[in-house]
Amino acid sequence: MSRVLVGVKRVIDYAVKVRVKPDKSGVVVDGVKHSMNPFDEIAVEEAVRLKEKKIASEVIAVSCGPAQAQETLRTALAMGADRAIHVEVAGAEYETLQPLHVAKILAKLSKDEKADLVIVGKQAIDDDSNQTAQMTAALLDWPQGTFASKVEKSDAGLTITREIDGGLEVIKTKLPAVVSADLRLNEPRYATLPNIMKAKKKPLKKVTAKDLGVDIAPRIKIVSVEDPPVRQAGSIVPDVDTLVAKLKEKGHV
């Protein structure tokens, strides 16, 4: 295996409270701290480890988004990716960018860059789609190992442990392949100072979807974005009998 392509998405940092815009057209992103989607951090970490184990020779980080996506790419470079590709998608186009668009972009880049493996996070914490890996694999007609909690190189290709309902599933795939990273795959590193400095000088190429021949015309229209319903306050009951009576009354027991 020589080349790994990693998809990284810039999302609102998960320690920040997300607010819905008053006009319900989306969430407030201006002036809000963003960082790399945590599952994508795991994907980058895995790719970098493959390189450290000399299984991979080069790691390319890709991000689709506005100019600030370059900050996310710099983080990937600081973690150990060798170079980065920024697919610029800004403004209204970015708001309607869907997993299918991203999958088409990743598929095209995988071919252009002659990637042997694509790793992405299993989902992004903003839209929670969990589709990009699967669609990319389908478009490329490559095997896929989604929700990976362990990735090992075997003679024929990869042995991937998948997190599935009720347990783990071990599969073998040939290469090239697409893998999506689950939470337990690894614990991503913090970029070290020398690597943060070095990352500033690593190559970062900017392209547009048009350059890649990918149509990113909107396929959806956002009708309304709403806050989740506010949890209703609980009440304290004086004793067990009252509790049982109340549960019965509401039909829970």
């Binding site: 940092d13 998960y14 320690a15 920040v16 701290k33 960082s35 945590p38 913090y190 970029a191 070290t192 100072l193 020398p194 943060i196 400095m197």
Partner: peptide, 21 residues
């Protein structure tokens, strides 16, 4: 940071502006 990495006062470390980190 670059200065103090050079002088050796800082051996290594990390720096971030991401709230979660």
């Amino acid at each position: 940071l670059s200065k103090e990495m050079e002088t050796g006062l800082i051996l290594d470390g990390t720096v971030t502006s991401e709230p979660a980190k």
